[in-house]
């Protein structure tokens, strides 16, 4: 188990800057999810750690070992690919044993380890099948098994569940988390699904356009987003521009008659952005229901029925 440290990593493809001065640390035994929209550089980052992408500048360390320019086959990082990359001409046994063979383990040891890891991912007895004979979820678990069995210093998961149905995705993500905790293996987990990221991570990193926007525990990043992009990505659907006013009681901003507090460091006439989630709002017809709520007055223009939810459009 190792700690991953990335310092000032930069990578461009032609004029497109894919990784922009990325700094992060993943402590040993932790599961860090990297969240971000398509094209944000998540895959590039993880492929740089694996050794398939060569950064222009910056450094990557596993514990104290500088692996920045090391060949991918020497790095002791294990990757699970989005399409699983199970070799179709080999049996499940041969797929999983491949890494162990390269480590020059004895035949008995390999047999034992393969059996152990297949039980670990809850697929006992499938050694002689071929990948094409398995379901998507099973293939994914074999890919995971193949990565885990070589005892890597760090596990890299590149959108491992994206190709699966929603129901299986939901189930498998917790299985992965349980496995990770059980083996206490340092893990980076890439996804574009914010629910997935928040539910299993020890730390969430939000990446956009090659830059880390925020790196925090799930609860913190959800309730205290650093900026509007982070907030919007994590589900805040109301983003309204406002202005700072000042009166004898202090600084404030206005929304539909509600007097809202303003963050530190702002002064009068500054611009601010008011962000809140739909689930933080209670629609009501009567006047204020108490001092713990801000009361925003407005007119309901449209309603949309969405099954479990209803969508209201309000104008202030």
């Amino acid at each position: 188990m190792a700690t991953l440290t990335i310092k000032n990593l930069n990578k461009s493809y032609g004029s497109l800057k894919v990784l922009n001065d990325v700094n992060l640390t993943v402590e040993e035994g932790k599961l860090v999810t990297i969240l971000g929209p398509s094209g944000s550089g998540k895959s590039t980052l993880v492929r740089a750690v694996a050794g398939f992408v060569h950064p222009e500048s910056g450094e990557i360390y596993l514990d104290n070992r500088n692996i920045t320019n090391q060949r991918p086959d020497l790095r002791n990082t294990a990757m699970v690919f989005q399409n699983y990359a199970l070799w179709p001409h080999m049996t499940i046994y041969q797929n999983i044993a491949y890494g162990l063979k390269l480590q020059k383990k004895s035949r008995d040891e390999i047999e034992q380890k393969v059996k152990w890891v297949l039980e670990l991912v809850d697929l006992p007895g499938l050694e002689e099948r071929y990948p094409t004979q398995l379901s998507g979820g099973q293939q994914q678990r074999v890919a995971l098994a193949r990565a885990l069995v070589v005892d890597p210093e760090i596990l890299l998961l590149d959108e491992p569940l994206s190709n699966l149905d929603a129901k299986i995705r939901y189930r498998l993500r917790f299985e992965i988390k349980k496995l990770q905790k059980r083996l206490n293996i340092t893990t980076i987990y890439i996804t574009h699904d914010q629910e997935e990221a928040l539910s299993i991570a020890d730390v969430v990193i939000l990446l956009n356009e090659g830059q880390i926007l925020q790196m925090d525990k799930p609860e913190k990043i959800y309730s205290q987003p650093n900026n509007s992009f982070v907030a919007e990505f994590l589900g805040a659907s109301n983003v309204i521009a406002g202005k700072v006013f000042e009166d004898d009681k202090g600084l404030y901003t206005l929304l539909g008659g509600a007097r809202l507090p303003v963050p530190e460091g702002k002064k009068a006439q500054d611009e601010v952005t008011i962000i809140f989630r739909a689930d933080e709002v209670i629609p009501a017809r009567t006047e204020s229901v108490g001092n713990q709520y801000f009361t925003i007055n407005g007119r309901n223009n449209e309603q949309m029925y969405l099954g479990a939810k209803r969508r209201y459009e309000v104008e202030t």
Binding site: D73, G99, V150
Partner: peptide, 25 residues
Amino acid sequence: DSYIEAALNLGSNKLRAIWEIILPI
């Protein structure tokens, strides 16, 4: 690419990957 990268990732060098993975496929 991912089939080849998976092999490299697990410790195979390029020549081995050609012989054991790419050619059989």
